[in-house]
Amino acid sequence: FIDQHRAALIARVTNVEWLLDALYGKVLTDEQYQAVRAEPTNPSKMRKLFSFTPAWNWTCKDLLLQALRESQSYLVEDLER
């Protein structure tokens, strides 16, 4: 899901800070967390977050999807259609 809908997630996720907090310490290191937060816009934050995903396994991507479902369920539901 995460890889399949990358472009839509970059464009449409609005609550990136919540995602970062949910992933911090589980998937994201402090350095990665700070790097994403330093980006000026939500799309650039999501691009930076996605720059780390090639090194993630399915469990990490599932944690991101779970966080998306909790914070932006309407968006996930729309993309699952």
Rank of each mutant, 00 (worst) to 15 (best):
A7N: 14
A35S: 13
R37S: 13
W58A: 15
K61R: 08
Y74N: 15
K48Y: 00
T14C: 04
R12K: 11
E17P: 04
Q32R: 01
P43E: 14
N42Y: 01
A67S: 06
R6A: 13
L64V: 12
V76D: 10
T14Y: 06
A35R: 07
A8E: 15
L65K: 09
L49I: 08
V76G: 06
F52P: 00
L20K: 01
W18G: 15
Q66R: 14
T41D: 15
R47M: 12
T59Q: 15
K45E: 02
V27Q: 05
S51M: 10
K61N: 07
E31N: 09
L65I: 09
L9R: 01
V27W: 03
E77T: 05
R12M: 05
L79D: 07
S71M: 07
L28G: 02
V13T: 14
P43Q: 14
M46G: 00
K48P: 04
A7G: 12
L28W: 03
A7I: 05
Q72W: 05
P54A: 14
V13H: 01
D21C: 07
T59V: 12
L65A: 13
S71V: 08
L19T: 01
V27F: 08
Q66A: 09
I2T: 11
V16K: 09
M46L: 10
N57L: 12
L64M: 15
D78R: 10
Q32V: 01
Y24I: 08
Y24Q: 11
G25E: 11
W58H: 15
E80S: 11
R69G: 03
Q72A: 11
A35P: 04
A22N: 13
F52Q: 08
L19F: 03
Q66F: 04
R69D: 01
A8H: 09
V16S: 02
K61A: 09
L65R: 09
L19Q: 08
E70V: 11
V13K: 01
F52K: 00
D3R: 06
A55F: 09
N57Y: 02
Q32H: 03
A22S: 13
K45D: 00
Q72F: 00
L19S: 02
R47Y: 01
E80C: 09
Q66K: 13
T41W: 05
E70W: 09
I10S: 00
S71F: 02
P54E: 15
R47L: 10
W58Y: 15
A67M: 08
W18K: 15
V27K: 00
Q34H: 14
Q4A: 09
H5W: 09
T41S: 11
Y74K: 15
K45R: 10
D62T: 08
D21Q: 13
Q72V: 06
D62W: 05
A38F: 10
W58T: 15
K48C: 04
L20F: 05
R37F: 07
W58F: 15
L68K: 13
S73G: 14
S44W: 06
Q72C: 10
F50M: 15
V13D: 04
S51C: 08
L79Y: 01
P43K: 13
F1R: 07
D62K: 13
Y33R: 11
V76Q: 00
E80H: 14
V76E: 02
A55M: 12
Q32A: 01
D62I: 06
Q34P: 02
V36P: 01
Q4G: 04
